[in-house]
Design a protein around this nucleic acid. Structure first.
Lengths: 127, 127
DNA sequence: TCTACATGTGAACAGATATTCATACGTTCA
DNA sequence: TGAACGTATGAATATCTGTTCACATGTAGA
């Protein structure tokens, strides 16, 4: 069972050309990781909220996004691990902010489209 | 067990203000769906390849991205369902192209950053 | 120091998702 | 018409992912 069909290419020139311009595997993985972080509705909500508010504590984030504080904490932990958000601890509270300028741009670009666009059509699988 | 902590807000004004500026639930869901599509390394590779090549058949895509043709087909089916890619069938081949301008912008913005940036640090979970 | 509170975290569970394998469909060419 | 080929697809499997629950940590104030 041939997997990658190295042979029998239709347009070998284009394939090898595109291959040279493809990002490396770790690059692809990193970029996919970023997109995946934005690919969960709850995390996305949190990031939008932080983008709008500038800074919010976990409790207020939970209220703003209608999530449990535990879910918020878990999500923030992930985002923190990827340096997308940063914390400032004051007293017994933890204030989070959006720290990654790149993610902010992706967020803005995404939102600028979605607001005025037609929703996707996942139902129409058949062409 | 209080879930959304409607009460005991630290900064109620900011919370209600941010809430009014939050996108609606379906909007968030749609945007998250788009990001999620870009959040898988193999799909991302396919889209980058199409973005570079303009148009490729399934076989050449599989070769370019080092994926099985079946995996490519399944991925394209998803992307097709979301109108991110489009097909042209010629003879027994199916040629795919990147169809969504918005996704192309997200792709470009994402790549423009990742290429010259430090990779993420998922290991450092503790602050 | 004792209690209440804000947040963090591990384990467990449930649901989603990607991959593979086998097979079906539709096209081309002999 | 029959065989080879390119692509599509369903089912099954394995893996990943998010949520919840219970509890731990650390801080503030009495």
């Amino acid at each position: 069972m041939r997997d990658t069909c190295e042979d029998r290419l239709v347009d070998p020139e284009r394939v090898s050309d595109v291959r040279t311009r493809m990002p490396s595997s770790p690059e692809v993985k990193n970029l996919a990781d970023v997109f995946a972080l934005l690919g969960d509705p709850n995390r996305l909500r949190l990031l939008v909220a932080l983008s709008e508010a500038g800074e919010l504590c976990v409790c207020d984030l939970a209220a703003t996004c209608a999530m449990s504080e535990s879910a918020v904490s878990h999500a923030l932990r992930l985002l923190r691990a990827h340096r997308v958000v940063a914390v400032s601890r004051r007293g017994r509270r933890a204030y989070y902010r959006l720290e990654d300028a790149h993610v902010r741009m992706l967020l803005d670009l995404g939102r600028s489209h979605t607001e005025h666009a037609t929703p996707l059509h996942p139902a129409e699988v058949a062409q």
